[in-house]
Structure formats: C-alpha cells, structure tokens
Design a protein around this nucleic acid. Sequence first.
DNA 1: CTCCAGGGATGAT
DNA 2: ATCATCCATGGA
Length: 306
Amino acid sequence: MKAIRIPAPEFDLEKTLNSGQVFHWERLKSGFVGTIDERAVCVEQRGDTLRVAFGEAPALPEIVSRYFALDHSLPEICASFPQDAPMQAAREFCRGLRIIRQPKWECLATFICSSMKQVAHIRQISRNLRERFGEERKIDNWSVFAFPSAQRIARSSEAQLRACALGYRAKNLLATARLVTRGDVDLEQISTLPDEELRAVLCGLPGVGAKVANCVMLFAYERLRAFPIDVWIERVLREQYFRRKRKVTALRLRDFTQSYFGEHGGYAQQYLFHYARLKSGRDAALRRPRTAQGAVPTSDKRRPLR
DNA sequence: CTCCAGGGATGAT
DNA sequence: ATCATCCATGGA
C-alpha cells in the first residue's frame, strides 16, 4: 500500500477525530481507518505530516486536506475567541483540533441518530448502518463501509433501522431519508441559504431540532458561527458564564452564545465541549487507546449485528 | 407549562 | 449479575 504525505501544521488528528463531531473513524495501528465520502482511507499523523493511504481509489491529497479543513487558519480563529479564562484553558487543551468538512447527508443522518445518545452509542449506530446498508471498501487488508445514501436508507424499513439500534430515531431517519430522496429538500442547494433560513429548513426535517440543526450547519455546511448547545456545553455555560445567576433560560443562553463568542463561535463551542468532556473523564474509551473493532480483516466473515 | 417515550453502553454495586 | 445513569426531539 502506497502512502502519500501531506503537510499538516497546526493539526491534531486524534483530537479532531475524538471530539464528538465525527463517529466512524477507528483506531488502526498508530493511525485511523475510515472513509471520506466513498473512499476508504488510512491516515496517520507524524509530527506536522499526515501519511495517507487510499483504498482502490487514486490518491488525492486535496480530498484529505479539504476534509480535515487544513486550510482553516487556526491562529486567526483562536484570536477571535473571547479572552476569558475558560476559553484560554480550552484553547490550550485543544490545540490543533479542527472542525472538519463532512458529507452533508452522512452528517445529517448521523446527527439524527445522535439524539439522546452518548458518543459510544452513536459510533455503534453509525457502524451498524454502514455494515448493514453501506458499500464495502477494501484498504490494505481491512474492510470499511461507506455511509449508505439517502436512497438506500429510504428503501429500508423502520424495523431494519431499529435492528441497527436506532430505537425511536428509526422513524425520523426513514422519514428524512424519504424527503431527501424525493427531492423535497436538496441538501446541496440549501447550502446557499443564509444561516437563519438554512437552520429553518433543517429544523423542518423529522428528528432535527435546534441542536442537531446547529451540528449539521457546523460540521457539514461550514457555518462556523453555529453553536450547538447540548448538556455538556450547557453545563459549561452555566458554571463559567452564568455562575450564581438564577433562571437562565434556554433563550438567554442562545442569545448569549450568538453575541459573545463571535464569528467562530462553533469552534469556541467545540473547544469548550472537548475540554469539558475529557477533563471530566467520563468517557474512558477516549483516554484508553483501543484497537479497531469496526474494521475487520477481509478474511473474516462479517459479524452479525448485536 | 409539564411529562416522558426510548435504548444500549457504561460505571457502580 | 443487576442497577442507575446518560440524553434531544416530538408528541400528549
């Protein structure tokens, strides 16, 4: 397998892939294996360089640098953060963490599945959907699966989706997949809309509320102002920015985040989120390096879903 | 406004 | 081995 080298200064691959924005990359040896769109990719960081191997597809460095947003100027983004103590700590802790550019349907579908789930569950669901409905791609002597298209999901049944551990989210994912397949919503076309209108369209989809819409805007539509508020961030906001204030409503929090964190609020959110989550140390899997589970040797038979 | 389905990994007992 | 905990959306 031939690897190409891509310069990647101010980048931390592990932090980026383990910060709760993307859920399908698996540890493999000293790097990660996953997919970028339809392509199987192995990526490993050595200092300021990425060593990248593609599966059967031709090796295209620009696909990798675009996906990992290596063109984002982290010094400029970090300089735009508010200068307060929690932000300083998060900024130092998250050095090199980037908001990546995810495929739109893959991101939307995954975050519909994320509601009321923790990171470990979301990873499980993503893997189940890929193994059950996605196309297999070989790389090295491993197998990975592309995320299934909206068309493929739309052709499945709610029961099949439930078998992927989606629970009540199955109905929402199926309904949204059908809307996208029918062309009622064009995920590419809406990328030209201003933030508020884009958010409104996304929130019109089943299973998409304000939080999921903001995640999709941030991770798939390059809306770096979008500030998803989940329980982790809400905890940080209340403790760090509204200490000993009573009756802080959701609306108040939303207004505060939009005005206070500025044009790269989504980055600020991601840094605060990742810092809070790892510091609290609840998700042990993040700190204990593990070997790949989803990527199976091609000699093995596919495992049955649990 | 309140209440709660829903489900599987995870840590505690 | 069982038990409690985590959690965003939508509908009653």
